[in-house]
């Protein structure tokens, strides 16, 4: 997929009046949202605000959930979960190739593993990988399919702070190379600010704040200008700095 300029205006996903409820309790209350192709978006919100519900709806994983609305999503969607979700009975490379066809598949799989720094671990069992390595293998598995939209639900939530920072750099780099639209669910305001070009706050079942972060990459946690964004996001989440 060669990047065209018009592609940036064509949305990778379009949500109109998307509603989801569990046992009569409305969790998503008419969401209108465009995710432009190639844009890196982060989704913030309180625990239980419905971030995962929204992501699972876009991924088409919510078969049994009541709801209405319109949803256009591209054909090639990849999902990265909080756990790496590698099949323990398949070696790392075979995990990356899960569901992939074609005679070129293996070469692509090896290349994807090399991109996430797992060259040479193709024949390892998932149980032999560290948490960070497993999550990198999961990233490779999602990228090898060349997704137009990459959905990630707290993909770094289970990692230690140091590994997480490394993974931020890796994800951003992979995004720059492959340019999928990204929807990254996170509860970490700083993670959202450092990584994303647009940050959404989910509140009471709607997009409460839609913030474009116009700062060059790579970003530092200590960039004072990012502090302003942080304050606005924290305020939208109902937290003030001195609390």
């Amino acid at each position: 997929m060669a990047p065209h300029t018009e592609q940036l205006t064509r949305p990778a996903a379009r949500l109109r009046g998307l509603t989801r409820s569990f046992d009569g309790r409305t969790v998503l209350d008419g969401i209108d949202l465009d995710l432009p192709a190639g844009q890196f978006t982060a989704l913030l919100g309180h625990s239980g605000s419905g971030k995962s519900t929204l992501l699972r709806a876009v991924a088409g994983l919510d078969h049994k959930v009541a709801g209405s609305g319109r949803l256009d999503a591209p054909e090639r969607v990849s999902v990265v979960f909080q756990d790496s979700r590698l099949l323990p009975w398949r070696r790392v490379l075979d995990n990356v190739l899960l569901g992939l066809d074609g005679k070129d598949a293996e070469r692509k799989g090896r290349q994807a593993l090399a991109e996430v720094g797992l060259e040479g671990r193709e024949r390892a069992w998932p149980s032999e990988l560290s948490g960070g390595e497993a999550q990198r293998a999961a990233l490779a598995r999602s990228l090898v399919r060349e997704p137009e939209l990459l959905l990630a639900d707290e993909p770094f939530g289970a990692l230690d702070a140091l590994t997480r920072i490394r993974m931020h750099g890796l994800l951003r780099e992979l995004w720059k190379r492959h340019r999928p639209a990204v929807l990254l669910v996170t509860h970490d305001v700083d993670e959202a600010i450092v990584l994303a070009d647009r940050v959404l706050v989910l509140e009471k079942g709607r997009i409460g704040l839609d913030l474009t972060i116009d700062r060059p990459h790579p970003r530092s946690y200590r960039d004072p200008l990012l502090g302003e964004y942080r304050e606005r996001l924290l305020a939208a989440l109902g937290v003030t700095e001195d609390q």
Partner: peptide, 16 residues
Amino acid sequence: SRFVELAEVQGLSRLR
């Protein structure tokens, strides 16, 4: 069920 979800995401056919 997590693996069922994974299979759906990866677009596996029922046989696979």
